[in-house]
């Protein structure tokens, strides 16, 4: 029996349809960009083990469907997330305008220590920019979010987004702000019940 990581952090990626949530996930976990990838109908997830302060941490990332009609269902996946990546598309203002509703959901459905990171995706499409960096940056500041602009296509800042979030969560863990509970999205490995897969644990509690 081996435990190649010490913690598991659960992330959720949320935001409007077509902002590139799945592409961010694939870029981060597989270094792969699939243009015109199909819309996520449901919830996908990927994992990657990262090093934070010399600790190996398994990020378990839940990528949710962005469609409005699934909103009620995807909400059930927020529970227990240690990190939330709130994504909009810098070339479509409408996706930026919806951030408030996404943020409200995230705040209401996760715990107060959940680290929320704002990501303006599609940074590579500078010519079609519809939301300035300054504006989004101010929004992030007002709402106490960390903010980065990224490109799932080129990979720019994708690592940074995921790792910065992990660092902040880890910091939170070290400062003792976060309880290590299986449903809390932060699990110490090996947990008491190794067979109890975190995603299933969160399901059972639904």
């Amino acid at each position: 029996m081996s435990f190649p990581y010490e913690y598991i952090f659960k992330y959720i990626i949320i935001g409007d349809m077509g902002v590139g949530k799945s592409c961010l996930l694939h870029q981060f976990t597989e270094n792969k960009f699939v243009p015109d990838s199909p819309h996520t109908i449901g919830v996908e997830f990927g994992t990657r083990i990262v090093d934070v302060n010399n600790k190996k941490i398994k990020l378990q990332i839940w990528d949710t469907a962005g469609q409005e009609r699934f909103r009620a269902v995807t909400r059930s996946y927020y529970r227990g997330a240690a990190g939330a990546l709130l994504v909009y598309d810098i070339t479509r203002r409408i996706t930026y305008n919806h951030l408030t509703t996404w943020l409200t959901d995230a705040r209401n459905l996760t715990n107060p220590n959940t680290v929320i990171m704002l990501i303006g995706n599609k940074k590579d499409l500078e010519g079609q920019r519809d939301v300035t960096y300054e504006e989004a940056s101010a929004f992030a500041k007002q709402n106490g979010l960390i903010f980065v602009e990224s490109s799932a296509k080129t990979g720019e800042n994708v690592e940074e987004a995921f790792l910065r979030t992990a660092k902040l969560i880890f910091q939170s863990v070290q400062e003792g702000n976060v309880d290590l509970i299986p449903d809390g999205g932060i699990t110490k490995n090996p947990p008491q019940t190794i067979t109890d897969k975190p995603q299933d644990a969160s399901k059972c509690s639904c």
């Binding site: 469907a65 009609r69 699934f70 897969k197 299933d200």
Partner: peptide
């Protein structure tokens, strides 16, 4: 209705 079809250790599929 929306159904959630869950794949153990995998993704969830929403069916409208």
């Amino acid at each position: 209705d929306i159904l959630i079809l869950h794949l153990e250790n995998g993704k969830d599929y929403f069916i409208s």
